[in-house]
Write a protein that binds this DNA or RNA. Structure first.
Lengths: 362, 362
DNA sequence: GATTGGCACTCGGTTGGTGAGAGTGCTGGA
DNA sequence: TCCAGCACTCTCACCAACCGAGTGCCAATC
């Protein structure tokens, strides 16, 4: 469910393949696995022993490769779709590849520059999120999921109280990540501008810069400091704000690049349906992404490791992003077939998350 | 491109089918067309003359139906996928069906009630839009497109100026349809709360309730009324607001139910790809929807009538929605295969648009 | 012990042919 | 104007044969 695999430090040779073999053979078997993954990702065809020796410098004959493949299959790292077909990696094989064998492939400088300029041209938060999605979708050729900065993890920039004609109060919350939320509040008492101004000033003084998650205490203090006749108002405001912010419906995500799923390069056994359906379950999807993301760096979840059955044929690459101080306020990710270009996808997700963090406090 | 067909009033019998035949034959041929459309929509199979006589009370033999079919084919209303297959309606055939033959089928009372309660439970605009999309997607089993209330067509509820720490001004625009937009403004001069308060008050007094589209004049008056040293500020605010509101990027749409496209009931000749790609071109898509929507009621665009090539195998059913006084502030629509249940889809779109208009000013 | 060439075996995909069935257009008669 | 009958066409499903790719195993070699 997370990117953590066996510790890179330990001597894990016989760990993976079970059978006792010499270190050098073990090494080559992993080379074979890497070659299989890379070839299969590129060609989308099960790869046989001969092709493998032709296309990669393994330095051994097909027969030897066949023996190695038998061992890899024994270990559950590769499989045959059917007899007399080549091998394809299993989820477990991809996992090992991602954890141990994949070489990071940083983006090119022009790519990085393109990300930077494209993101910095955004005019507001909606635009930032939309652009981030398009970047991921285009760089990876897959589906991008971008979460709006979570309200609970954001800081408060400003709290505004707007009286409307009908004796209702509009409460507007503006976060330091640029989100704006609003709720109506029925106020029983008449409001004069003075009281409202005072309340506004006090609320903002008490809450400025605080996390929205732990803003409750701040509100309590404000209510007490108000003259008794206005305490109910202060409490009501506090209530509506905390209620609005704690609502799960306020966690929003944006999907981009679904058209990429229909490209010929993506053929799913079960068809597109389960994938599209999983993507529409936004609440569940967000839960999955949240669970698999740890604070540090990029996380990968492969095939059946995903809780959602609809994503059993896909892999998910996520990263948190946030303000430049490293706090994660939201998640962004790329979803594609398990047979994806992991190094490229990881690099793209990481890069966009990084620039996004930089651009974010607009 | 719009729903307007031949005037219902005119005697259009020979108009459609070209050949001179008796009125009663003409009548029956249209019955045959209706039967073909209904059967094909239901079974997804080309329908032959025998099946047709068996399943519908046409009162004539298959041979006669064949003659009628030949006439309908001659008129371009139906076609054969290949020799020795049944007939399927052409875009033109669907058009005639929608304009002349389809019977409105209102929703059931429980359905209406479900729409009403589901929409009224929404907590804010985002929620309203999302729920409307889910309703359409679920009722029609197709893709729903819901546009956020267009800023240009909304009225202004409130304009807020928030000074931020870094000497920048945050301008927040709140519309009477519930949308909130915000922009940052670099202000050269120092701001004291008094000036800001005065400007805010004047702006709101001058603009309250006005359409955002024609708010420019109102701003001009405010700038003149301000003391000379603050006129630049007023002008700058006016500029940033008008700029923000006129941006095309602020027209937002939400797609729901894309998973429905992958259902077995939707098989497109060209596959899903062109459809999904067309749906991702949100700007173009919105333009298409806007063009085809007239103010009165539901509009239908069928197959190749759609400007977007990717939607050549789909039909689009749209309706405007807006405040209860009938003004259209945005569009909502359902997109599915040309072989869709037109009466049902039209009824669903109309109903949701209607209730949405009622619920909208949250 | 590791590697390799050779060889028999398996099995999926393709090709080509055939027959059934569905649907049509046409024609002549009511 | 309608309709029954008939010959014709075309698709689809089925089947059989074939081909090629790839494997596993074994004996020989380094």
């Amino acid at each position: 469910m997370s990117e953590s695999g066996p510790e890179p430090g330990c001597n894990s040779r016989t760990f993976y393949l079970g059978t006792e073999v010499s270190a050098v053979s073990e090494e080559r078997r992993l080379d074979v696995l890497r070659a299989i993954v890379e070839d299969y990702v590129r060609t989308r065809e099960p790869v046989g022993s001969r092709i493998l020796t032709e296309r990669h410098q393994l330095g051994v004959s097909p027969a030897t490769v066949r023996n190695d493949m038998a061992a890899l299959e024994e270990a559950g790292l590769i499989a045959q779709p059917h007899t007399s077909a080549g091998r394809i990696p299993t989820d477990k094989g991809y996992r090992l590849f991602v954890d141990q064998l994949a070489e990071v492939r940083p983006l090119t400088l022009p790519q990085k520059r393109a990300i930077e300029t494209f993101l910095s041209e955004a005019v507001d938060l909606d635009d930032v999120v939309a652009r981030a999605g398009r970047l991921i979708a285009q760089l990876t050729g897959q589906v991008a999921v971008v979460q709006y900065p979570s309200l609970r993890r954001s800081g408060l920039r400003h709290l505004e109280l707007v009286p409307t004609a009908e004796g209702r109060l509009l409460v507007v919350v503006i976060t330091d990540t640029g989100r704006v939320e609003q709720r109506f509040l029925d106020v029983p008492v008449d409001l004069d501008d003075g009281t409202l101004g005072e309340l506004r000033a006090r609320l903002n003084a008490a809450t400025a810069g605080r996390r929205l998650a732990d803003i409750g205490d701040a509100f309590a203090g404000v209510a007490e400091a108000m003259p008794p006749e206005h305490r109910p108002l202060a409490t009501a405001v506090a209530e509506v704000v905390t209620a609005a912010l704690s609502e799960e419906s306020e966690e929003r995500i944006v999907l981009t690049g679904q058209a990429n799923l229909a490209r010929s390069s993506m053929r799913f056994e079960q068809g597109l349906r389960p994938v599209l359906e999983a993507l529409e379950e936004q609440v569940v999807l967000l839960g999955l992404l949240t669970d698999m993301t740890d604070d540090a760096g990029v996380a990968v979840s492969i095939g059946h490791e995903n809780r959602l059955a609809g994503l059993a044929e896909t892999s998910v690459v996520t990263s948190g992003y946030g303000s430049s101080d490293g706090d994660t306020v939201a998640i962004l990710s790329s979803i594609g077939p398990t047979r994806m270009d992991y190094p490229g996808t990881i690099a793209a997700v990481r890069a966009v998350a990084r620039y996004l963090s930089r651009v974010l406090p607009s």
